[in-house]
Amino acid sequence: MHILSSLDEVLDRYDAVFCDVWGVLHNGRRLYPGAAPALQAARKAGKTVILLTNVPKPRGPIPAQLDRIGCPRDAWDVIVTSGDATRFELGARAPGPVFKIGPEEFDRTLWEGLGLQTATLDRARFVAISGLNREDETPEDYADILAQAKARDLEMICANPDIVVRVGDRLVWCAGAVARDYSAMGGRVVMAGKPHAPIYDLAYRELETHTGRAIDKSRILCIGDGVTTDVAGANGQGLDCLFIASGMHGEALFSNGALDAAKIDAALAAEGVRATYVMPELA
């Protein structure tokens, strides 16, 4: 694993970048200062930048959200979301009915136009989760719901495999934490976002459409801060990975203000994954 000071050091090895959003480009409140300029420089060098995010909604509203926090449009070419990949799984199970978990207004576009009917848990044919209903909740608050779903052997569709995400200075639980607990109980879970294959399959198709040609996997670089999502997903796809050691980790992988290689190695080894490169933050 090579420690980089600039993305420019390795850009000539790649034709495309799959870049995570939360934890790499922004923290939910503001842009990280060096991230957008790094992606702009990559595009100026002729690289295609695909923002690959586990946000549990289709890509439609994402550009406007990035606009609001000041992310320039020329920092990316295409956006691919877990919501895009998950809608296929949801549509295949229409009309349901489905028992939904997640903030209604935030994830509204995830469900639109799929013809899904909603129901109480005792009448539902499957469960779908886009996030916790409220930011002040924890996965433990869903223990009773999970027990009831498991008793009926209901399948769970999880629109966001992330366990936590950094929002400003706080870590907020994501849908993946509830899905993790359901899986640990023996429940059946389907996920389309990182690190799972469907979101990458969609990204490859979008990349080929944008460039007009197939790009060999050896020429694609993944960038992300999630060990179990970004790094594991890249490993599973046979793609090189640049691990961002801040993001959701804050200062946990640093010592005295500098990257701590031993801590990084331990964090990756704990999940059985590897990174090709590491940076403190994207720049």
Rank of each mutant, 00 (worst) to 15 (best):
I215A: 10
I157E: 15
D144P: 06
G131F: 07
R152P: 02
G187Y: 08
Q237S: 06
G212A: 07
D74L: 02
A258K: 14
Y142Q: 15
I50G: 01
P95G: 04
E135R: 10
D141M: 13
T86M: 11
L116D: 08
P280E: 14
G176I: 11
D181K: 07
I199E: 03
R188E: 15
V164P: 08
D240N: 10
A149N: 13
E135H: 00
I50V: 15
F106I: 12
A258Y: 09
W173P: 09
I79L: 08
V273M: 07
V98L: 08
L51Q: 05
A203I: 06
G28W: 14
G187K: 13
A258I: 05
I145T: 15
D136K: 12
G212N: 02
E251K: 11
K100T: 13
L242D: 05
H249E: 06
L90Y: 09
E155T: 15
V189L: 13
P161R: 08
P37T: 00
L51S: 04
H2W: 05
Q65A: 06
E155W: 02
D225W: 12
Y142M: 12
E89Y: 11
W22T: 04
D144G: 07
P97F: 07
T138Q: 07
K44C: 01
R213T: 14
Q65L: 14
G83Y: 08
S5C: 09
D153F: 08
A269Q: 11
A214L: 13
D240Q: 03
F243A: 00
Y142W: 14
R13W: 10
T53W: 05
Y182V: 01
R180P: 03
L207S: 06
M156K: 10
G224R: 09
A177Y: 02
L39Y: 04
R43Q: 06
G186Y: 05
R219Y: 04
S6K: 06
L114I: 00
S255C: 07
V273C: 01
S255H: 13
F243E: 04
G226N: 02
C158S: 15
L121F: 00
I129G: 08
R93V: 14
A151P: 12
E140R: 14
Y182H: 10
D8R: 05
D67F: 02
D15H: 13
I62G: 08
H196S: 11
D230E: 03
K47D: 13
R68D: 13
D240V: 04
I50E: 04
H2R: 15
A214M: 07
L110C: 06
C241E: 07
R152E: 12
Y14N: 13
D67S: 12
A267Y: 03
M248G: 02
L282I: 00
E105C: 00
T86F: 14
A149L: 01
S82A: 15
V278M: 11
S5Q: 14
F254E: 11
A245E: 05
V227T: 11
G236P: 06
H196I: 01
D265S: 11
A214P: 02
D169W: 09
F243I: 10
V49C: 08
T118V: 03
R73C: 05
V189W: 10
T81F: 00
P103M: 05
A38R: 11
G91F: 05
S6V: 03
K263H: 01
L52I: 03
L52V: 03
I199C: 10
E206F: 03
H249K: 13
G168F: 02
K44I: 02
